[in-house]
Amino acid sequence: MKKIFLLIMIVALLVPCSDLLAQCSLCTKTAQQLGEGPAKGLNNGILMLAFTPLALGAFLGWRWWKSQRAVSDN
């Protein structure tokens, strides 16, 4: 299980984030008006702001799962 998790994490880190689109329809329209460079910056900013709560939620979920597994083993 640990090997699969490690493999998934390595693959996730190697996937380039610049090609991801993380904009709502309103942000997309605003970015189209700004031009190519600022639109990429806006998209990267949205991805960076979304990463922290998602990573925190994943960490807390992992800790909960691990503690529940330890309780059921005893």
Rank of each mutant, 00 (worst) to 15 (best):
E36G: 00
L54I: 10
L6A: 15
G37F: 08
W65R: 15
W64M: 11
W65P: 00
K40L: 12
L7Q: 07
A22T: 04
G45E: 02
A31G: 05
L54M: 14
S25K: 10
G35P: 03
A50L: 08
K3F: 09
G35V: 02
T30W: 08
A39V: 02
W65Q: 13
L21M: 08
S25E: 12
G41T: 06
A70Y: 06
W65F: 14
A58Q: 05
N44R: 07
R63I: 10
K66N: 10
L47D: 01
I10M: 13
G61Y: 02
K2Y: 09
F51S: 06
W64Q: 11
L34R: 04
A39F: 02
K2P: 04
L47G: 03
F51E: 03
S18K: 06
A55C: 08
L14D: 01
A39Q: 05
L47H: 04
L54F: 10
D73E: 15
T30F: 08
D19Q: 15
T28H: 04
L20V: 04
A55S: 06
D19A: 14
S25N: 09
I46L: 13
L56R: 02
N74C: 12
V11H: 05
G57F: 14
A58M: 11
M48N: 01
M9P: 00
L26P: 00
G37T: 12
T52N: 08
V71C: 05
K40C: 05
P53A: 06
A55M: 07
G61I: 02
A31Y: 01
C27Y: 00
S18F: 12
S25V: 06
W65N: 10
G41F: 04
G57W: 13
W65V: 03
K40E: 12
Q68V: 04
I10Q: 08
L7M: 09
L60A: 12
C17Y: 11
A55H: 00
G57D: 02
N44P: 00
I8Q: 09
D19W: 13
Q32A: 08
F5R: 13
K29S: 11
I10T: 15
K2D: 12
K2M: 11
G35L: 03
R69Y: 08
K29N: 13
M48I: 11
L21N: 15
I4C: 01
T30G: 06
I10N: 04
A39M: 09
N74A: 13
L54G: 07
S25W: 07
L7V: 05
G41D: 06
A58V: 10
L14N: 07
L7C: 10
N44W: 05
Q32H: 11
Q23N: 08
G35H: 01
V71E: 15
V11W: 10
A55L: 09
K29L: 10
P16N: 07
L7R: 05
F59N: 03
S25T: 06
K29A: 13
K3M: 09
N74M: 14
G37D: 08
L54P: 00
K3T: 14
T28I: 04
R69Q: 15
T52R: 09
L47Q: 10
L26I: 11
L60Y: 11
E36D: 10
A12S: 14
C27V: 03
Q32V: 02
G61S: 03
G61H: 03
R69D: 12
L34M: 14
P38A: 02
D19L: 13
